[in-house]
Design a protein around this nucleic acid. Structure first.
Length: 954
RNA sequence: GCCGAAGUGGUGGAAUUGGUAGACACGCUGGACUCAAAAUCCAGUGCUAGCAAUAGUGUGCGGGUUCGAGUCCCGCCUUCGGUACCA
C-alpha cells in the first residue's frame, strides 16, 4: 500500500473532531501543563508559512507532554482588534466585524490543515463582546486602583480617599503624577472636580496629555507604522505631533517588580536583558534649579550628581510646560520656529541623530544650585518630555550629546573629571578624579557621587531618586476597531465609570469608518451612542491592540464564563503558562504589558500567581523575500520608467529611483541576486497594477518599451528586467506571502510540520524556501515502507536484535533530550538516521516499530495515527504513552578515540573501556602514525580526555 | 543612535559542558533499474595540490587566551528583530 497523505490526513482530521481527542478539562489526578502560542492577528493575507513555525514546535511539546501523562492545556484564539481591518473598512466599506470573521474562518481552516492539537472549545476572540466585556472590566479595576509603595501593591481608590481625609497627600507614598501637595483640611474643602483631578493623578488608569502623530492632510492620527521618513505612507503628507488628552496606564508603578521578578523566569538571557534595558532602572538624584526672575524651578534627574560643577547650561524638552512662560520676548520667534520643527520630527529621529544636534535658547537663565552662577536655559529635541523630568542639567565635559550641543552653540565647557589615570576609559565610564569641583575635588567619581548625593539632600537642593526609562503606556487610540472605554463624562468633564453589570459596552454600528473632525475617533460619528445618557458624553477613543492580548492567556482557562473573567478553581488549577512560544518582536511590548496586568490582577486577588509565563521560547521569524523594481522618481515624457537593476547598479547610487514591491509570484529565479521579470512577468505585473500599464521598461540589453511593445516577442527570456531582492517580513504589503495550504496540498501536513522543524533551530530567523522539503517527504515514505510494501503489511512478531534495539533506544534518548531542550531540527535528523538504519537492517518487527510510531506521533500526528491503527490498536496513538529509553541497550565495551597531534586529528584507535590511562598511552605511542609525527622526539605531554579524545603535544 | 540576536561547504543546517568541524538533508557528479521518464537504489562530494597514499588549508574580518577555539576574551564588518500607535 502506498503512503497517500491526503487520504490519511482527511480521515484522521475527522476522527479527531468526532472523538474530541484534544478536548481538555480540569483533572486533578494528573499534573497540568499549559502550552501557549502567541495568538495571531487574523490579517487579510491569511496565515503564512511563518506563523506555524512556533505553533508546530509547541504542538510537538503539547503532544509529547500528553503522552508523558500530563493534562495539557493547549488553546488557540485570535487577537482580532487592529488597524488593518479598520483601514480595509475605510477603503471598501466592509465592516471590520465582517472582514475579521472571514479572516478568522480562513485562519481556522488553515490551522486545521496542519494537524494541531488545539482544544477549540476554548477559542478566544478579543473582538467578541463576550471577551472584551472582561477587558473593559479589568480597565475599570485599574481605574479604581492606585499603587501604594508602602505595601508594594495596588489598592482601592477608596483607601486613598480615606488617607487623604486623615492626613492629606503627605501621608501617602504612592506612584502618582500629582504635582501639588495638600493637607487633610485642604482635601476636605476641595470641590468634587478638584478632588477628581487629584485622584486621576493617582489612578492606575488615568488621563494625561499625550502626543499623537497628526496628519492634517489626511485628517487623521497615524500609527508610527504608517509614517515613512517623516511623511504619511499614504500620500506622503507632512505629519506633526499633536497634544491630546488621553488614557494612560501607570505601568511605571510596577517597574521595580517587573525588573526584580524577571529573575526566576526561564527566559533567555537575551530576552531578560532586553526587558531590563527597557525598564532602564537608574539611581541618581532629582535636583531643583531655581530660575532667574521666576518663581518656578526646573527639576532635573541626573545619574551623575558628581559632575554638577561642570553643568554650564540646561536643556528642556521642547514640550516642557515651563517653556512658554520663561521664553523672553526676544527669543519667542526662534523658540516657536524650533518647536514647529521638532513637532515634525519622530521620537526615533530625535534619539537617533547624535552627530547633529539642534536647539534654541529661551532667553532665560537658571541659577546653579551650588555655585550660584547664572546658566542659560535651552530647549533641544534630544531631551524627551516623557523621560525623567523632561529636563537635564547639561554637563558638556562628560556627556557626548551635551558636548556636541555646547560646541555647536558656543557654550562653556568646564572639565570636572580627570581620567588621565584611566587610559581607554570612555566619556560615560564612572571613573576618574574630580577637578574644578569645589568640595569634592580629588575624590574618585564613585565616592564623589555619594558625597554629592548627601550634600544635595542635606541642603534641600533635591533628593536621591530612582528613575526608569520605562514610561507609562498610552492607552487611547482614535480608532473604531478596538474596545470602547466603559467611561462617560459628565457636564463638568469628570470621567465616570459605567457599572460593571452593564458591560460589555458594545461598539456602535457605523457606516463610515473615517475619523471624525480634529482627529477624533470614528466613534464620535455615532452621535446617538455618544449622547445616550442625558447629561453625559461617552469616551470616543478606544483601547489599543495590547489591551486584549494582555490577559487572553487567563481567559483560555475558563473561556465561556459569563460571571467572571475566569473562575477561581480554573485559575487555581491551570495557574500559569508552563511554556510560551512566540516571536522576539514581542520581547518588550506584549510581554511587558501582560506581566503588568497579571501583577495587577495578583494584587487585587484575582489570580494566584505573580508571573504569567514561566518558560518562554522565542521562535525566529520565517522571512519572506521582497522583490523590488527600480522606478525612476521623475517621469520621462510623462511616462513612468522601470529600470533593470544592473543599470542602476552601474551608477553606484540609487538616488533618483524608488523601489516598488512586486508580487513574488511574477518573479523568476526569485530570492537570489539574479531575480528578474521576463515578458510574462512584466505582463502579469502591469495587469496587477493597471496604473503602470503604460510604463516603460528598460532592460540591460538595450530594450525599452511598454508591456504592450513586448507582446510580439517569441522568447520570454529575451528581455530580463532585473530586480533587487531583500529579506524581510512576510507580509501582504510586500506581496510575498506563502500560504501553508499550498505546501500541505502538495506534500501533506506531516511533511510540512517536519520540514518547518527541519529548517533549523526554532529561535533562528530564516527566509522561506522549499528547497529540501523533498528530503522530509522521502523520509516519510521510507518510514512507511518499514510497515508496508506495495501491497503487503510487513510487520511481524520476530524478536528484535540487539542492534535494532540499540538503534531504537538511541533514537528515543536523542528525541526526548531534544524535545526537552527544544532542539526539534536535530530530532528530525535523529528520526532520519533511525529509519535509514532500520531500513538497512531490514527491520520489520513490531517490537521496534510499535514504539517508534509512538515516538514519532508528536511530530507527524497523521501518518502515525494510521500506522497505529494498522498495528491493531483501536484508540488514538495520541492517547497512548511515550516510549522510555532503556540504557541497557546502549552499552558498549569499547571506545573509539581520535588521536590528535598538537590538536589536529591524525588517526583513530579503538580501546577497551577497561583500559587504564597508562595502558592507552602505551598503545598510542606504539602507533605508526604517532611515531611518524614524533620524528624520534619524546612527546611533551599526552592528554587523554575520557570517552572524548587523545591529544599528543610534540 | 540605542537595546537584543545571528554569520560554519554550492544551499538549509549539525557539533548539548573548550575536545574528531561539516551529522542529517537539499543540490551536484557518476552509476544501477527502465524502450524512456518518474520513483527507487548504490557511490562520490568543504577548498587547494596530487593518479593515489597524503599534505596544506578552512567556521564573517583582525588580534588574543589555551595542549586544543565554531565555542572563551578584545576590536571591527554585515544582516535581522525591537525602539513605546503594525501586530
Amino acid at each position: 500500500m502506498q503512503y497517500q497523505p491526503e487520504k490519511v490526513e482527511k480521515k484522521w482530521k475527522q476522527y479527531w473532531v468526532d472523538n474530541k481527542v484534544y478536548k481538555v478539562d480540569i483533572d486533578t489526578s494528573k499534573p497540568k501543563f499549559y502550552v501557549l502560542d502567541m495568538f495571531p492577528y487574523p490579517s487579510g493575507a491569511g496565515l503564512h508559512v511563518g506563523h506555524p513555525l512556533g505553533y508546530i514546535a509547541s504542538d510537538i511539546v503539547a503532544r509529547y507532554k500528553r503522552l508523558k501523562g500530563f493534562n495539557v492545556l493547549h488553546p488557540m484564539g485570535y487577537d482580532a482588534f487592529g488597524l488593518p481591518a479598520e483601514q480595509y473598512a475605510i477603503q471598501t466599506g466592509v465592516h471590520p466585524e465582517v472582514s475579521t470573521a472571514e479572516n478568522i474562518a480562513r485562519y481556522r481552516s488553515q490551522l486545521d490543515n496542519i494537524g494541531f492539537s488545539f482544544d477549540w472549545s476554548r477559542e478566544v476572540n478579543t473582538s467578541d463582546p463576550k471577551y472584551y466585556k472582561w477587558t473593559q472590566w479589568i480597565f475599570l479595576q485599574l481605574f479604581a486602583s492606585w499603587y501604594d509603595k508602602n505595601s508594594g501593591k495596588a489598592q482601592p481608590i477608596s483607601v486613598l480617599i480615606s488617607r487623604f481625609e486623615e492626613g492629606g497627600s503627605s501621608v501617602v507614598n504612592a506612584a502618582h503624577s500629582n504635582d501639588r501637595g495638600f493637607s487633610s483640611e485642604e482635601w476636605k474643602n476641595m470641590s468634587d472636580i478638584d478632588k477628581d483631578q487629584i485622584l486621576m493623578n493617582y489612578r492606575l488608569a488615568y488621563r494625561k496629555v499625550g502626543y499623537v502623530n497628526w496628519c492634517e492632510a489626511l485628517g487623521t492620527v497615524l500609527a508610527n507604522d504608517e509614517i515613512k521618513d517623516g511623511l504619511s505612507e499614504r500620500g506622503g503628507h507632512p505629519v506633526e505631533k499633536k497634544a491630546m488628552t488621553q488614557w494612560s496606564l501607570r505601568i511605571t508603578a510596577y517597574a521595580e517588580r517587573l525588573l526584580n521578578e524577571l529573575e526566576h523566569l526561564e527566559w533567555s538571557d537575551a530576552l531578560k536583558t532586553m526587558q531590563r534595558n527597557w525598564i532602564g532602572r537608574s539611581e541618581g538624584a532629582r535636583v531643583f534649579f531655581k530660575l532667574e526672575n521666576f518663581d518656578d524651578t526646573i527639576e532635573i534627574f541626573t545619574t551623575r550628581p558628581d559632575t554638577i560643577f561642570g553643568s554650564t547650561f540646561m536643556v528642556l524638552a521642547p514640550e516642557h510646560e515651563l517653556v512658554p512662560a520663561i521664553t523672553t520676548a526676544a527669543q519667542k520667534v526662534e523658540i516657536e520656529n524650533y518647536k514647529n520643527y521638532v513637532s515634525s520630527r519622530s521620537e526615533r529621529d530625535r534619539m537617533s541623530d547624535v552627530k547633529e544636534v539642534t536647539g534654541a535658547f529661551t532667553g532665560a537663565n537658571a541659577i546653579h544650585p551650588i555655585t550660584g552662577e547664572k546658566i542659560p536655559v535651552w530647549i533641544g529635541e534630544y531631551v524627551l518630555k516623557d523621560y525623567g523630568t523632561g529636563a537635564i542639567m547639561a554637563v558638556p565635559s562628560d556627556d557626548e550629546r551635551d558636548k556636541v550641543f555646547a560646541e555647536k552653540f558656543g557654550l562653556t565647557i568646564i572639565p570636572v573629571v580627570d581620567k588621565s589615570n584611566y587610559p581607554g576609559a570612555g566619556i560615560h565610564d564612572k571613573t576618574g578624579i574630580m577637578i574644578n569641583s569645589g568640595f569634592i575635588n580629588g575624590l574618585e567619581v564613585k565616592e564623589a557621587i555619594q558625597r554629592m548625593l548627601d550634600y544635595i539632600e542635606s541642603n534641600g537642593l533635591g533628593r536621591k531618586e530612582i528613575n526608569y526609562k520605562l514610561r507609562d503606556a498610552n492607552f487611547s487610540r482614535q480608532r473604531y476597531w478596538g474596545e470602547p472605554f466603559p467611561i462617560r463624562y459628565d457636564e463638568e468633564g469628570v470621567a465616570c465609570t459605567l457599572d460593571e453589570d452593564v458591560l460589555p459596552l458594545v461598539l456602535p454600528e457605523l457606516e463610515n469608518f473615517l475619523p471624525a473632525t480634529d482627529g477624533r475617533s470614528p466613534l464620535a460619528r455615532a452621535e446617538q451612542w455618544v449622547h445616550e445618557t442625558p447629561g453625559f458624553v461617552r469616551e470616543t477613543d478606544t483601547m489599543p491592540g495590547f489591551a486584549g492580548s494582555s490577559w487572553y492567556f487567563l481567559r483560555y482557562m475558563d473561556p465561556n464564563n459569563e460571571n467572571e473573567f475566569a473562575s477561581g478553581p480554573s485559575l487555581e488549577y491551570w495557574k500559569d503558562v508552563d511554556l510560551y512560544v512566540g516571536g522576539t518582536e514581542h520581547a518588550v511590548g506584549h510581554l511587558m504589558y501582560s506581566r503588568f496586568w497579571h501583577k495587577f490582577l495578583f494584587d487585587i486577588g484575582k489570580v494566584p500567581t505573580r508571573e504569567p509565563f514561566l518558560k518562554l521560547i522565542n521562535q525566529g521569524m520565517i522571512q519572506g523575500v521582497i522583490e523590488y523594481l527600480f522606478m525612476k522618481k521623475e517621469k520621462v515624457n510623462g511616462q513612468t520608467v522601470f529600470t533593470s537593476a544592473e543599470i542602476v547598479r552601474q551608477k553606484d547610487s540609487e538616488d533618483g529611483y524608488t523601489k516598488i514591491p512586486v508580487h513574488v509570484d511574477f518573479v523568476r529565479s526569485g530570492g537570489a541576486n539574479g531575480s528578474y521579470l521576463d515578458i510574462k512577468g512584466i505582463l502579469k505585473f502591469t495587469e496587477w497594477r493597471p496604473e503602470f500599464a503604460n510604463a516603460v521598461f528598460e532592460s540591460g540589453n538595450g530594450y525599452k518599451g511598454t508591456a504592450a511593445n513586448f507582446l510580439d516577442k517569441d522568447s520570454t527570456d529575451e528581455i530580463k528586467i532585473y530586480l533587487v531582492s531583500e529579506i524581510g517580513k512576510m507580509s501582504k504589503r510586500y506581496f510575498n506571502v506563502v500560504n501553508p495550504d499550498d505546501v500541505v496540498a502538495r506534500y501533506g501536513a506531516d511533511c510540512f510540520r517536519m520540514y518547518e522543524m527541519f529548517l533549523g533551530p526554532i529561535e533562528q530567523s530564516k527566509p522561506w524556501d522549499t528547497k529540501g522539503i523533498e528530503g522530509v517527504q522521502k523520509f516519510l515514505r521510507k518510514f512507511w515502507s518499514l510497515f508496508f510494501d506495495d501491497e503487503k503489511w510487513l510487520v511481524n512478531d520476530t524478536l528484535a536484535t540487539a542492534e535494532e534495539k540499540k538503534v531504537l533506544h538511541t533514537t528515543i534518548k536523542k528525541v526526548c533530550d531534544d524535545i526537552e531542550r527544544f532542539s526539534l531540527n536535530t530530532s528530525v535528523s535523529a528520526f532520519m538516521v533511525c529509519v535509514n538504519e532500520l531500513k538497512r537492517l531490514e527491520c520489520h518487527t513490531a517490537e521496534i516499530l510499535e514504539p517508534l510510531v509512538r515516538l514519532l506521533a508528536p511530530f507527524a500526528p497523521f501518518i502515525t495515527e494510521e500506522l497505529w491503527q494498522n498495528l491493531g490498536n483501536s484508540s488514538s496513538v495520541h492517547k497512548s504513552t511515550y516510549p522510555v529509553y532503556n540504557p541497557e541497550f546502549l552499552t558498549s565495551d569499547t571506545v573509539e578515540y581520535p588521536v590528535c597531534v598538537n590538536g589536529k586529528k591524525r588517526d583513530m584507535i579503538e580501546v577497551s573501556k577497561e583500559m587504564s590511562a597508562a595502558e592507552i598511552e602505551n598503545m598510542v605511542m606504539a602507533m605508526d602514525m604517532v611515531q611518524k609525527w614524533l620524528e624520534g622526539k619524546a612527546p611533551k605531554k599526552i592528554i587523554i580526555v575520557p570517552d572524548r579524545m587523545i591529544n599528543i603535544v610534540v
